[in-house]
């Protein structure tokens, strides 16, 4: 059970390992706080839709399951969108159409199809929560790196010295692609080192 939760954080991290849900990952991570908000919204949607899908998994005929799942996901995205608009208007405005685009985040449909439509409610909940948090963590890392190098700040706090020449490219689309590419590479290097250690111990 704990495995269901933990695997999303590292071993099957949705962004770095599975390379799922790329559109929001790249688009909103110009600042760490946007990454955090997008991560939380996505976690909410993936957890709620996984619970509902797991509950109704025996009632849904196989042929129509994909449209059913999509409608359930779209409903929760609408809820998340209106909640953000009501409580955090500034962030909702900055993220713009990328909040509704959570509907087509392959991460969510992927969890529904691969896990929630087959397993019980508790395990689906843990799986979705792990994946959501892994996604959020990846977004915060990416957002922090880009904000640090692009504006010299992290979460809006000045980190680098005054007069630091900001790397404008980090805030532009090109920076998003290149940073994520390098982070995926870094992730692989760390993962390999950790794996080597584990095999040596055992």
């Amino acid at each position: 059970m704990i495995k269901d939760f933990v695997k999303g954080l590292w071993k099957e991290n949705p962004v770095f390992v599975q390379v799922l849900g790329m559109c929001p990952t790249l688009a909103v991570t110009t600042k760490a706080v946007f990454g955090l908000s997008m991560g939380v919204a996505t976690t909410f949607v993936v957890v709620s839709s996984s619970i509902v899908i797991s509950l109704i998994r025996k009632l849904v005929p196989k042929q129509v399951r994909i449209p059913m799942f999509t409608v359930i996901i779209a409903t929760f995205v609408t809820v998340a969108d209106y909640m953000l608009k009501a409580n955090f208007f500034e962030i909702s405005k900055a993220l713009g159409p990328y909040i509704p685009l959570i509907v087509v985040n392959c991460l969510i449909l992927g969890r529904a199809e691969a896990f929630a439509s087959k397993k019980g409610v508790v395990r689906s909940f843990l799986d979705a929560l792990g994946m959501g948090l892994g996604f959020t963590a990846a977004l915060i890392v990416l957002g922090s790196v880009r904000e640090l190098l692009g504006a010299g700040e992290v979460f809006g706090y000045r980190v680098l010295w005054e007069g630091f020449t900001e790397w404008i490219v980090m805030i532009l689309p090109a920076g998003a692609f290149i940073t994520l590419g390098l982070l995926v590479g870094l992730f692989n290097v760390i993962d390999k080192k950790v794996m080597n250690k584990e095999t040596k111990v055992t």
């Binding site: 390379v19 689309p173 090109a174 920076g175 998003a176 692609f177 290149i178 994520l180 590419g181 390098l182 995926v184 590479g185 692989n188």
Partner: peptide, 9 residues
């Protein structure tokens, strides 16, 4: 994935 993303950049 890594090199693909960098090329996309």
């Amino acid at each position: 994935a890594g090199i693909t993303l960098i090329i996309a950049g």
